[in-house]
Computed example of a mutant assay.
Amino acid sequence: MRILHTSDWHIGRSFHGHATLDALRGVLEALVVQVRDNRVDVVIVAGDVFDSAAPAAACYSLLTDALRGIADTGAAVVVTSGNHDSAARLGFQSALLRDGIHVVTDPRMVGTPITIADEHGPVQIYGIPYLEPALVRHHWNDRAMRTQHDAVAHAMDLVRADLADRGGRSVAISHCFAAGVEATPGVEREIRQGSLDVVPLSTFDGPDYVALGHIHGRQQLSERVRYAGAPLHYSFGEAAKPRGSWLVELDAAGLASTSWLELPVPRRLETVRGTLDELLTDPSFAEAEDAWVCAQYTDATPQPDPMRRLLTRFPHCATVMHTPVGQRADDGLTYSRRVREARNDVELVDAFLAHVREGEGASEEEIALIRSVIDEQTLAEALA
């Protein structure tokens, strides 16, 4: 049996204010081609299908088209809900879906597999939707359910108990933060409380393969426990992480092989750094002109209208950051103390500039200009 493991589609997510639906549609169309070309039997989507609990109508249309495209290849689909999804909205139409498309959102179904057979017999696929302890503890009130670790551990106990009765090959799907992963700062929404909600790798003992979701970068925790990551880059912090899916093959004995299938990147991400003038003129940045750009300009002081100016060279500049180099050391003075210690109006203006420039006061040329303006104003007031 060939299984394609994908996750974290985040349909409806924006990228620095830019819609991603069209880009994601193209990537998912490429995924459908991979399913057909590799004669995939089952496609697993391990949570965070949508980016929000209340997605727009166009998001549902994209999901419908993607699921229909996969099903048209002859592959079955197993989808679980993630922490971004509304389990109710994602699952309410599951009974109406065509045969071969399975949406698992109900925690009461944990431990009840979707059985799909190949020439070697049945494979039990156990979907575990995202389990919020506060929402599922009333289903399992005989167990302590304070953390997500508690919830996932109990879910896997149910999986192993059922598997002990059924026997044979098996796959588990979970959406969680497993021990040993590297998260992308600011990308994966926090679902931990300190270290208590980190799920130990041993929690997933038993199944032949465990398909995880939540982390946006490809990661291998063991030969049989992996994250596939998101199909699109949703942050500049993900720029170096490949996009794709795991192709998993089960033989009669269990896990036979895994391989990585790259997905196309509609527009690559580049971070460029230099003074604003360098970013606008230096030929070394030419390769970034057709990429999504994070521009970090290093001028000592903020420059006027940097985004508008950068867009003239980088039409897909998504964000601009002022990251000056060679800043003066922090003198520890608060703004109010600087103001109190100012002996005249020139020093008062200098104190304000030091505050807004994070420690860098007026230059000699600026001091001369400030003094000239203040002297002119003083003279005008004296003659009035």
Rank of each mutant, 00 (worst) to 15 (best):
I3P: 01
S7F: 10
A19T: 14
L28E: 15
D37T: 15
V43A: 06
V43N: 04
F50G: 03
A58V: 12
A58R: 12
A58H: 11
Y60F: 14
S61P: 08
A66R: 00
L67M: 14
R68H: 14
G82L: 00
Q93C: 11
S94D: 08
L97I: 06
G100K: 12
V103K: 03
D106Y: 02
R108M: 05
I114P: 07
P122F: 05
Y126I: 08
Y126S: 02
E132F: 07
D142S: 13
A144I: 11
D150P: 06
D150C: 05
R160Q: 05
S170E: 03
I173C: 11
A179W: 13
E182H: 12
G194S: 15
V198C: 06
P200Q: 09
S202Y: 11
D208Y: 07
Y209P: 00
V210D: 01
G213Q: 00
I215Y: 02
Q219A: 00
Q220I: 12
R224G: 00
P231W: 05
L232G: 06
Y234E: 03
S235D: 10
F236A: 06
F236K: 08
A240R: 07
W246D: 01
G254I: 01
L261V: 09
R267M: 13
R267E: 10
L280I: 09
L280D: 09
S284M: 12
D290T: 15
A295L: 08
A295C: 10
A295T: 05
A295R: 06
A300C: 09
A300S: 10
P304W: 11
M307S: 12
R308S: 14
R308I: 10
R309K: 13
R313K: 09
H316V: 09
V320H: 02
A329F: 10
R337D: 11
R338P: 01
R343Y: 08
N344G: 10
V346E: 10
E347C: 00
E358L: 06
A380W: 01
A380F: 04
